[in-house]
C-alpha cells in the first residue's frame, strides 16, 4: 500500500499544475486551432470545415504587419541589450549593499499600469508637448517635426516598457560572477577591457540569452505601443489580431494570425537557441 502511494505521489504532485495547463493552455489552444479552420460570418455563424485557406489569406493580407512586428521586435531587443547591460552591470558590481534598492527603483514605474505609462509618453512626446515645443520655439527643430506616429516612437515605447525583462536576467547572471574570478583574470595579465571581454561577458551571456527570450516574444506581439504612440504606418501584428477579434469579429482570421505569429516566433527562438544555445554559449565564449 505504502509503495503504491509512494509511486503515485509524483503524479498527485503534478496534478494541480497539469490541470492548470489543461484548462488554460491545452483547451484554449485546441479551441483556437479549431476556430482558425472555420468558415462563415458573424451573422450566420461559423462552421468547422478544415478551411486552411484562412492561413494563406491571412498571410496574403497581413504579411507587411507581421514582418514589421518582427523587425520592430528585433530592433527593440538590440536596444534593450545595449541599455540593460550597463544598468545591470552597475547594480551587480557597484550596487554594494543597496543592490535591492536599485532594483526596486528600476521596477517602481512598473507598478503603474502599462497602458497609462504608455499614454503619458504620448503626452510627453506630443507635437506641442514639453519636449518638442521648446525645441521648436528656439528653432532647433522645424515646426513640422514630430515623433509620435513614427517607428522610432513605437520602438522607443517598446524598449521603455520591457526594460526590466532584460535588466533582471542579465543582473542575475552578473551577480553570480565571483569577483575573485575577475581578479584572477587581472592577475593573469588581462587589462580591465580584456577581463571584461574574456570573463565577464561570456559569463553574462546566459543572462542575455534569457533576457532576449523574455523580451523578444512579448515585444513582437505587443499591440499597445503602436496603438498609442504609432500611426497607421506602424501597425503591428498584435493590433491586427486584436482588431480582427474585437472589431471585425472575424475569429477564424484572428486565430489563424495568432498561430502564424506563434509559429514564426517559435522558429525564430529555436534558430536563435541553436545559434547561441546555453551550452554553446560557453563554447562560443571560450574562443
Amino acid at each position: 500500500m505504502d509503495r503504491v502511494k509512494r509511486q503515485l505521489a509524483p503524479y498527485f504532485l503534478v496534478l494541480p499544475g497539469g490541470l492548470w495547463l489543461l484548462l488554460f493552455f491545452a483547451i484554449p489552444m485546441i479551441a483556437m486551432l479549431s476556430l482558425s479552420l472555420q468558415q462563415g460570418d458573424i451573422v450566420n455563424g461559423y462552421q468547422f470545415t478544415f478551411h486552411w485557406q484562412n492561413y494563406t489569406d491571412a498571410i496574403d493580407s497581413y504579411h507587411t504587419q507581421l514582418i514589421r512586428s518582427l523587425i520592430y521586435g528585433a530592433v527593440a531587443t538590440i536596444f534593450l541589450i545595449v541599455l540593460a547591460f550597463p544598468v545591470a552591470y552597475w547594480i551587480a558590481f557597484y550596487g554594494g549593499k543597496r543592490k535591492s534598492t536599485y532594483l526596486f527603483l528600476l521596477l517602481l514605474p512598473f507598478f503603474v499600469s502599462f497602458v497609462l505609462r504608455t499614454i503619458s509618453w504620448r503626452q510627453i512626446l506630443t507635437d506641442d508637448g514639453p519636449v518638442l515645443k521648446p525645441l521648436k520655439e528656439i528653432g532647433l527643430l522645424s515646426d513640422s517635426y514630430h515623433i509620435l506616429g513614427t517607428p522610432a516612437a513605437v520602438i522607443g515605447g517598446l524598449v521603455y516598457n520591457f526594460l526590466p525583462f532584460m535588466v533582471l536576467p542579465i543582473y542575475v547572471a552578473l551577480e553570480r560572477i565571483d569577483p575573485r574570478v575577475v581578479e584572477a583574470a587581472r592577475d593573469l595579465y588581462a587589462n580591465p577591457a580584456t577581463a571584461f571581454r574574456k570573463v565577464i561577458l561570456p559569463l553574462a551571456l546566459p543572462g542575455v540569452f534569457a533576457g532576449v527570450l523574455m523580451s523578444f516574444v512579448p515585444v513582437s506581439s505587443d499591440y499597445v505601443n503602436s496603438e498609442v504612440l504609432g500611426s497607421s504606418s506602424t501597425t503591428m501584428i498584435g493590433q491586427v489580431i486584436q482588431a480582427q477579434y474585437l472589431v471585425n469579429s472575424d475569429y477564424p482570421t484572428a486565430s489563424a494570425l495568432s498561430f502564424i505569429l506563434m509559429a514564426v516566433l517559435l522558429v525564430g527562438i529555436f534558430a536563435y537557441a541553436r545559434a547561441l544555445g546555453t551550452e554553446d554559449v560557453m563554447k562560443v565564449a571560450a574562443r
Binding site: D178, R180, A184, D187, L188, A190, L203, M282, A286
Partner: peptide, 24 residues
C-alpha cells in the same frame, strides 16, 4: 596594476574560470 606585475596568485576557493576547461 595587477596585470603588469610579474606575480601570480592562487585564490582561496581557486576562482577558476567556470566557462573554460582545464587547458584554457
Amino acid at each position: 596594476a595587477p596585470n603588469k606585475r610579474d606575480v601570480n596568485m592562487v585564490f582561496q576557493s581557486y576562482a577558476l574560470f567556470p566557462h573554460l576547461n582545464t587547458y584554457q
